[in-house]
Design a protein around this nucleic acid. Structure first.
Lengths: 265, 265
DNA sequence: CTGATTTGTTGCGTCTTGCACAACGCGAAG
DNA sequence: CTTCGCGTTGTGCAAGACGCAACAAATCAG
């Protein structure tokens, strides 16, 4: 059982292997969430003494993972993070090849466009481009989302090998909203439908008010390696717009696929 | 005094504030450098016991900063890094606006193109696009490089406010190669030249065999906020090609500047 | 198939080291 | 000037991180 939506799960749950490391990583998460925080604020959030928070943040500072704003000011995430991220995306070809198409789709659709890959029992977004719509959407990158409740997840699952499909279908499908598909039989039918028509949609199954559509991206070997999705508020992504949006997503996905060396039928 | 080129400075130097955190960050650096490493290899690199390395990497794994490849396999950087990176680039507008131009420049020039910003006494690359030239270049993102020995640095310094310029000119200019400018007077002359003609170049001043050119990027307020640079092997970026390359860089920089809202003279 | 070697994993006891406390320096605000 | 709040730093104690060693699960040699 792997946890989803890995937010700051501080001070709760199972024993962390190394306390101080865990706390340091909480500092990073907190800074990612809040932007800028002072030592005192961090200490309060972590529920530790000021001096402890200070030493943690200093250790991170020396490695450039955080940076101090003034000389005695608040802290925020540092540019050292980018070095690590560059090494991470280096092995994700789709992240390079997909950016331009995603940017174009985000502009055309006016919605947030993501590319997600499957990792264990989760869909993880590895690239996000914001549409110019005024409604701010959250940052989904790097967050584990359940395969059965997201459009990308359904696409990835629909074209996954039997082992992965079975694992999810036999696991307990926890309801995240009232609309979440929790019945394995119905999920299976939905997946077949997705595989047939070539795109997936989820309406308020992950989060109330959120609707998303997704299409499969294939790599050089023809295997579905990722999914491109558009997500936005349900009042804008209405069912009668699905066909049009899906068409654009499928076309975009095809273009990315061809960049990855897929020229198949 | 801030250290440059923050590689894995493990087991050496000043007392780190929190040992285990420092070691954990070393793990991340090592994985960024080597791609995939096992517990035993990590333990050897860190010079700690196997079990210690295991616990560190497990703590990182729980937060998705690293991921294990098989069920009992090696480890590599995880996608959680991307979440942090997205939060970091969120406040770097130039990183968004500059990508497309950098990609085009990298293709046109066939060299690696970077965008760097000034942070304290260093130039830090925040975006990198690879040219299609066969000579592989290293990943420079997030690495602190000295302002006086890089083309981006000279650009940033040439247009910086007096305080920052003075701080660097009065510091000791450590020679990194035989070609590094170590005389403050000469550096000052070079900076004036850069400001006059609008671009900078460095040949083997940071690293033997490496030549780079850079041009200034201005933000909406007209302030030089970043620099775009092209870097490649000295045998390809020869002095007689400087004018041509610089012209393209300056044009690209101007385009990025206009995207940032700079329409000035 | 079997034994040997290697690698990831885990309980345990000890001593390292991370932590809470408190005091200090420095700004800002009143 | 005083007060308050902030980031920063020495210090002593015990929480907890680490090294040891044994275990488990692969991989390989024969």
């Amino acid at each position: 059982m792997v946890s989803y939506m890995g937010e700051t799960n501080r001070s709760g749950g199972d024993a962390s292997q190394v306390q101080s490391v865990d706390r340091a990583l909480s500092v990073l998460d907190l800074l990612a969430k809040h932007g800028e925080l002072g030592v005192t604020e961090l200490a309060a959030e972590l529920d530790v003494h000021k001096s402890t928070a200070f030493r943690l943040v200093t250790a991170l500072d020396r490695r450039d993972l955080v940076q101090q704003i003034g000389d005695r000011g608040k802290y925020r995430l540092g540019l050292g993070i980018l070095r690590l991220a560059a090494a991470t995306t280096g092995r994700l070809e789709v992240s390079h090849e997909g950016r331009e198409v995603c940017e174009r789709l985000a502009n055309e659709l006016g919605e947030t466009v993501n590319i997600a890959i499957m990792e264990d029992d989760a869909a993880v977004n590895v690239l996000q481009e914001y549409g110019n719509a005024s409604v701010m959407t959250r940052n989904w990158i790097g967050r584990r989302t359940p395969l059965y409740a997201t459009s990308s997840g359904k696409v990835l699952l629909a074209f996954a090998d039997e082992t992965a499909r079975k694992a999810v279908l036999e696991s307990t499908l926890e309801p995240l909203t009232d609309n979440t598909t929790t019945d394995p039989q119905q999920l299976l039918r939905e997946l077949d439908e997705v595989a047939r028509r070539g795109w997936a949609c989820t309406s308020e199954e992950l989060e109330i008010g959120l609707t998303a559509l997704a299409a499969p991206i294939r790599d050089g070997g023809g295997r579905v390696a990722a999914a491109v999705s558009a997500s936005g508020p349900s009042f804008r992504l209405t069912p009668d717009s699905f066909e049009e949006v899906a068409e654009k997503l499928v076309a975009g996905a095809a273009e990315i696929s061809s960049r990855l060396g897929y020229y198949g039928a």
